[in-house]
């Protein structure tokens, strides 16, 4: 599986962090692209809310929030023929977005780990970081990379024989 890029959007839709790995198509205008993507995510969230089945307990019932989606989202991922986009939205409105090749399974857990191990540790707990500004911390980048690296290992190695090697690689970098 290939991992293309990662975005972190704030509650107001500004991009706090962007990183790319195996991206093949160079973006012409990064800022424009990020704006397109956050617009897309807003639309998809609203769409998912309207298309959800009637007995969906995970969503608020009030219709006032229907056009301007706030609160929990039930969107997980979408895929095209060429790539797949995974999104995890925290309760505080942060959006963690990861694009991969389309064979990937549900990666919400990985994005939750990015939140737990990278964002909370290196942004929230950093006394010099002010909320809502872009993240420049080097340790954030390292932790993000280590989480994504475990993902690449997990997906390429599927045989139980190599489980030991996998555990040996992953743990020292990710445990804090």
């Amino acid at each position: 599986m290939q991992v293309y890029n990662f975005y972190l959007f704030s509650r107001h839709g500004t991009c706090l962090y962007y990183r790319e790995w195996q991206r093949t198509r160079p973006g012409s205008d990064t800022q424009q692209e990020q704006q397109n993507l956050i617009g897309l995510l807003f639309a998809v969230k609203q769409l998912c809310r309207s298309l959800a089945p009637a007995n969906d307990d995970s969503l608020p019932i009030d219709t006032a929030t229907r056009y301007m989606p706030r609160g929990p989202s039930n969107f997980c991922s979408y895929s095209t023929e060429k790539y797949q986009l995974h999104c995890f939205e925290s309760s505080t409105g942060l959006r963690f977005v990861l694009t991969t090749s389309p064979t990937a399974s549900d990666l919400t857990r990985i994005l939750q780990r990015v939140y737990r191990e990278a964002y909370v540790e290196c942004a929230i707990r950093n006394p010099l970081y002010t909320l809502g500004t872009s993240i420049v911390s080097e340790s954030f980048r390292k932790r993000l990379d280590s989480v994504i690296r475990t993902l690449a290992v997990e997906s390429t190695v599927f045989r139980p024989a190599s489980e030991k090697a996998l555990r040996g690689n992953g743990s020292p970098a990710t445990k804090s």
Partner: peptide, 22 residues
């Protein structure tokens, strides 16, 4: 979704499937 693609978009038609929790 076609425009924000990180890879070649030559014969990509854009979103084909979407998964939500429910």
């Amino acid at each position: 979704s076609r425009q924000v693609s990180p890879v070649d978009i030559l014969d990509d038609i854009g979103l084909t499937s979407l998964e939500a929790k429910t």
